[in-house]
């Protein structure tokens, strides 16, 4: 049975209590997208500042649970300073980690005992790996990322 400590790792609670890069950026020049979790009513705004292909700043505003807030906070620390392509690569890795959940609700999970390859290079973000044991919380963890992705899509248009 997955326990609370599988979900609420210390680094997650740290990012929840002390969220990094909270705030807003002026739009334009910054890009902004708004995301909703229809399940719980959480709302998040992600602001992205670009210099050419490089992400120079990201800010998060809105409200959410510890998982959605910490995931968004960690995301900012990983993507700031990266190129759009690099950030999208991290996004793919993260979402891959969030989707390796071919396991039952009783916690019988072969994917999480190391037998399935977990994307590497996610740093602190790997603390969120336990979220897949709590399927309803996956949307919390991916909310900020999907919203970030929408903001980046603005750059393409």
């Amino acid at each position: 049975m997955p326990g609370l400590e599988d979900l609420y790792r210390e680094v997650i609670l740290d990012h929840y209590r002390n969220p990094r890069n909270r705030g807003e950026l002026e739009t334009p020049p910054a890009l902004m997208a708004e995301g909703f979790n229809p399940l719980c009513g959480d709302e998040v705004k992600v602001y992205v500042q670009l210099d050419g292909d490089t992400i120079t700043d990201v800010r998060i505003s809105g409200q959410g649970c510890s998982i959605s807030q910490s995931s968004a906070s960690m995301m900012t620390t990983v993507v700031i300073g990266r190129t759009i392509d690099e950030a999208r690569g991290t996004l793919r890795s993260f979402k891959q980690m969030m989707s390796i959940h071919e396991h039952g609700l009783d916690g019988q999970d072969s994917a999480l005992d190391g037998s399935t390859e977990v994307p590497s290079g996610l740093g602190d973000l790997e603390a969120l790996r336990g979220v897949v044991k709590f399927p309803v919380r996956i949307k919390c963890a991916t909310l900020g990322w999907n919203t970030f992705d929408q903001a980046l899509a603005e750059a393409d248009s």
């Binding site: 326990g3 399940l39 719980c40 009513g41 649970c65 510890s66 919380r137």
Partner: peptide, 21 residues
């Protein structure tokens, strides 16, 4: 404490409540 986090802890104690809007 966010409702989602609260109900998660309650669930660990067998308590079923609804979290959300």
């Amino acid at each position: 404490i966010h409702a989602h986090d609260l109900s998660q802890v309650l669930d660990q104690h067998g308590v079923c409540v609804r979290a959300g809007h």
